[in-house]
């Protein structure tokens, strides 16, 4: 089993990596479900291969009005808005910390409530949605865990590890609700990321 010490040894990692690690580890160490335990090795290997995820460069689609001075042949590209998942915002960091604290105290509803509060401040943070998905999985709300993880994937991803964590939550939730075939396909897919 992964001990708490193992976790603390990794505190040197950047917080961002730690967050996704933590989420993935949580899947692995989730106390309630044996299926989750089986995923341990796999999830760990996924989690620790931290690399920067670069989505293939596709121009942002946009239909905003064009400017007259647009040089011929230039595509209208709006820069993607700054993504929230960097969490430079101390308010978000504080809420994440409080949520983890509540989780450590086995108060999952309160942990969820802290993340929802953070989402009111940064509703488009893939990272916060991922954190929420992990909490729902731990609370055995499998359907919502799967959907919330999908929601996390619908936003710009911060890292490969983050995307993988979301897919693992989806696979685990599907497995728990009986859709083993789909879960297996997803795990296969995650390997290609």
């Amino acid at each position: 089993m992964v001990s708490k010490t193992a976790l603390s040894e990794r505190t040197a990692l950047s917080l961002k990596t730690a967050l996704s690690l933590n989420t993935a580890l949580r899947i692995c160490t989730g106390p309630h479900n044996t299926i989750i335990l089986l995923l341990l090795a796999m999830a760990l290997s996924a989690c620790t291969s931290s690399g920067t995820y670069r989505p293939q460069t596709v121009p942002t689609m946009d239909s905003s009005p064009t400017r007259a001075e647009l040089p011929s042949g230039t595509e209208v590209i709006t820069p993607a808005p700054p993504d929230a998942s960097g969490h430079s915002n101390p308010a978000i960091l504080s809420l994440l910390k409080q949520s983890r604290q509540s989780r450590a105290n086995n108060n999952l509803p309160q942990a969820i409530s802290h993340i929802e509060r953070a989402l009111r401040i940064e509703p488009r943070s893939a990272d916060l949605w991922l954190e929420l998905a992990g909490l729902h999985l731990e609370a055995l709300n499998f359907e919502n865990a799967e959907q919330v993880a999908r929601k996390s994937l619908s936003f710009a991803q911060e890292s490969v590890a983050q995307a993988k964590s979301a897919w693992y939550i989806i696979a685990t939730a599907l497995e728990a609700t009986g859709d083993r075939a789909q879960a297996a396909r997803i795990r296969q897919y995650v390997k290609t990321l």
Binding site: Q56, P59, T60, D62, E75, A80
Partner: peptide
């Protein structure tokens, strides 16, 4: 108000 962010999709390209 902030401009709606639309996630680019892999199999699509922008055409003017």
């Amino acid at each position: 108000i902030t401009p709606l962010a639309i996630q680019p999709a892999l199999d699509f390209e922008s055409v003017v």
